[in-house]
């Protein structure tokens, strides 16, 4: 079975994510990249779209940015975080979660898909650590929408 098929099945099995028809997954240099079907008309060789994840010896891994974009289609294994947990998820190695579950979880804060993390022993380990420290210094959701 190709890694792309394995990855697609993983998305469906773990999260109930079925990608829209116009979205293509393709393996390139040991990672799975995601892009629009229309990009296939571009002939010169190069790196397509961005990295969706990889299938390796450590199992299957989806990347945070990919989940941010397609996590809205998820129907299961979603973990709702509060603001403190959400900030910690982005900025730190892990966030404490009061749960005995384990496995990959899509982290959400209100309606916003933050990314993906691995839940183990009451800790949700973020995918973002290791790619450079992220920072969030503000909060969302004012009492009233702005007129712009």
């Amino acid at each position: 079975m190709s890694h792309v098929t394995t990855f697609r099945e993983y998305l469906l099995r773990e999260f109930g994510i079925a990608l829209p028809r116009e979205i293509v997954l393709q393996e390139q240099e040991n990672v799975i990249r995601v892009f629009s079907k229309t990009l296939m008309m571009l002939k010169p060789a190069g790196y397509m779209g961005f990295v969706a994840g990889k299938v390796g010896t450590n199992g299957i891994e989806a990347k945070g940015e990919f989940i941010q974009l397609f996590g809205k289609h998820a129907t299961k294994n979603i973990l709702e975080l509060d603001e403190i947990q959400a900030k910690s998820f982005v900025e730190n190695e892990f966030v404490e979660i009061n749960s005995s579950e384990s496995g990959w979880k899509i982290a959400k804060f209100q309606a916003h898909v933050l990314g993906i993390g691995r839940l183990k022993d009451g800790k949700l380990y973020s995918d973002f650590i290791g790619k450079g420290r992220k920072r969030v210094e503000n909060s969302l959701n004012p009492s009233k929408a702005q007129s712009i």
């Binding site: 892009f35 990009l39 779209g49």
Partner: peptide, 27 residues
């Protein structure tokens, strides 16, 4: 690469070449 991923850009192919000598004609 990082901005493409963060901003959800899906219709872009990245190449790392010398733009002064791209050598692609009428395309």
């Amino acid at each position: 690469f990082s901005n493409i991923a963060r901003l959800g850009v899906l219709n872009t192919k990245v190449t790392v070449r010398d733009g002064t000598r791209l050598g692609i004609n009428t395309y």
